[in-house]
Every structure is written in C-alpha cells, then in structure tokens.
C-alpha cells in the first residue's frame, strides 16, 4: 500500500507528511502532480503549502489541475483522500468537500497551537478518537476561515460532516477559541466517500520530539482503514 502525497509547485508540507506517515509505519511517497497517481495508490494526501502561490484564491489553481480528476476518480473508487491546510483549500475548491476556506477574520497569517473537539468519530480520519475528545494541533494559515451558506452549514451539521471544531482546552466551542472566524468553529469536514479536509496540521503533531503533541497521529492513521 502506498499513500501518494501530491506535490504541487509551492507545496511545502509534502516532506513533513511523508516523514510523519513513515514514522507511523504507513508507506508513503511524494508524487509530483504532473506525473499522475501511481497505480498501486491506496491513499491520497493533499499537503499544506502555497500551491501556485495562492494565486486567485488559495487552492484555486491546484484544484483545477489534471491530477485532481484522478484524485476524484480514486475517491469515488474508495481511496481515502486527506487534505491538510492548503490541501483542505484544494479540497473545497475542487468540490471534493463543501464550503470554502477564506481569509482569516484577523486578515493575518496565524501560526499557533489550537485545540480541536472531535465531532464525529465515525470516519477514518477520526476513528482513533472518541466523540468529544479534545486534541491539540498546530495551525499555520492566512486563509482558514470556513465559509458556507447558512443552509449548507445546517445541512453539513445534519449530515454529521463536521470532523473537528475549534474549542478551548476543556472542549468548549466558544468565539474566543475560534482562531480565524470559521462558521460554527469548523476546522475540518468530510465530503463523500473517504474524503476529509482540515486546516490544522496533524502531520506536525506526530513525531514525539516536535511540537509537544502527537495528537495528530490518529488523523493520519485514517489511511490504515483503507
């Protein structure tokens, strides 16, 4: 089994992702987007970074590159797809998931540690946790504010598609704990099939010697459920 970490021009978390996955014993390799997906692909990760320099909108260009058609087909065949940070923006822009990640309420790039409450533990990306668990992950984004119309938001909640919400250390979902103004404090959602996206970086919270948290390992272990 091989997880393909798709590298675009401007991706910068692709090596971290491969390192973190390898540390967890999950076979992973970087795949340059122009080379297409390997035939034996068993998982796909869209990593963080600034693909295409964030031109037009973060993720807009990568979402319309040819490899995303392959990603869409693989997803429909049951291959799990995880989008992190810029990969989450690509996921939304490509229609793999609903909504949009746009400019932070602060209008600033924010690099900090946040707490997340697990909202739905019945997905590959959250199966390692229990509903209501609080985990700590780093964020690093300027365009992470989750936006979607009120009607669509209600539908997402009803369909149980919210993976994580920003919360305080005790798991309270409050305005103060919302780092970027996301609707409903949403930090990550799932789409159809095995598609999940989130703005925080689980791959930066996997190695014991880095960042003081290994809480992100459970998200990446979603690839083991394939």
């Amino acid at each position: 089994m091989t997880v393909a970490v798709v590298q675009f021009g401007g991706s910068n978390c692709d090596r971290d992702a491969v390192r973190a996955l390898s540390h967890l014993g999950i076979d992973a390799e970087r795949v340059w987007h122009e080379d297409g997906l390997p035939e034996d692909v068993t998982g796909i990760m869209l990593p963080g970074g600034f693909s295409y320099g964030d031109y037009l909108r973060a993720g807009a260009m990568a979402a319309r590159s040819p490899i995303l058609s392959e990603v869409r087909e693989a997803a429909a065949d049951g291959v799990p797809v995880l989008g992190v940070c810029n990969g989450a923006q690509v996921g939304c822009e490509s229609g793999l998931t609903d909504g949009a990640f746009t400019t932070n309420e602060s209008a600033r790039f924010q690099c900090e540690r946040v707490f997340l409450r697990v909202e739905n533990a019945d997905t590959p990306w959250t199966a390692a946790y229990d509903e209501g668990d609080v985990i700590a992950l780093p964020i690093a984004h300027g365009e992470g504010r989750f936006e979607v119309s009120e009607e669509r938001y209600d539908q997402l909640v009803e369909e149980n598609r919210v993976l994580f919400r920003y919360c305080d250390a005790d798991g309270n979902v409050t305005d103060d704990a919302n780092p970027n103004g996301s609707r409903g404090n949403v930090a990550g959602i799932c789409g159809d099939y095995g598609v999940g996206v989130l703005m925080p970086h689980p791959e930066r919270a996997c190695l014991p010697d880095l960042n003081g948290s290994t809480d992100g390992a459970g998200v990446l272990r979603g690839f083991e459920h394939a």
């Binding site: 037009l56 909108r57 807009a60 939304c92 822009e93 909504g99 949009a100 746009t102 936006e147 669509r152």
Partner: peptide
C-alpha cells in the same frame, strides 16, 4: 463559473 469566482462565497 468554472474558475474566476467561487460560488460558495
């Protein structure tokens, strides 16, 4: 529709 605008926002 296909690129310049994002219909969500």
């Amino acid at each position: 529709q296909r690129l310049l605008a994002n219909p969500t926002i």
